[in-house]
């Protein structure tokens, strides 16, 4: 797998869909491709957010640490972006993520990510759009529940 494959993966991420391929290449090049073994943690709930991840291959569980132990609330798969909220909002990690089987992921360092957003408005707008869409969706879901 090379940089080109990673760029292909990044293009599948909704947040990065509309971004120039050259920018995505920069994003990929400045990230690290790392592997996790089964059960290895990406990060732990309450940690400081230092990086976001894009799963290139494999799957990961989203676990909430509760008084009664860990509770699995969701699962991430290929081309999913993980942990970007803690990086953007500077809040602690809201959940623990562990690898299911061997996972290959692209680790996007927080500082690098912020630098890129600051440098390229196009990327910042894409990120904003994605977050606004999510908010919209949540609102719609809340409205439909009521």
């Amino acid at each position: 797998m090379t940089l080109e494959n990673e760029v292909q993966s990044l293009r599948q991420v909704p947040m990065f869909r509309d971004i120039d391929p050259a920018r995505l290449k920069l994003l990929a090049f400045t990230s690290e491709r790392v592997t996790f073994t089964d059960g290895q943690r990406f990060f732990t709930q309450g940690d400081v957010g230092d990086a976001a991840y894009v799963i290139l291959d494999g799957a990961a569980d989203v676990l909430l640490e509760t008084a009664h132990g860990q509770l699995k609330v969701a699962e991430f798969g290929r081309n999913d972006l993980i942990g970007e909220m803690a990086v953007l909002a500077e809040t602690p990690r809201s959940a623990t993520i562990t690898a299911v089987g061997d996972v290959v992921a692209l680790r996007i360092d927080k500082r690098v990510f912020i630098e890129l957003l600051a440098q390229f408005p196009q990327m910042a707008i894409a990120v904003m759009r994605e977050i606004a869409t999510r908010l919209e969706r949540t609102n719609a879901r809340l409205a439909s529940r009521n």
Binding site: A22, K25, F29, E115, Q119
Partner: peptide, 11 residues
């Protein structure tokens, strides 16, 4: 890759 970054940029 780096063409569009200004010289001296930390990245």
């Amino acid at each position: 890759i780096f063409r569009d970054l200004p010289p001296g940029h930390p990245l």
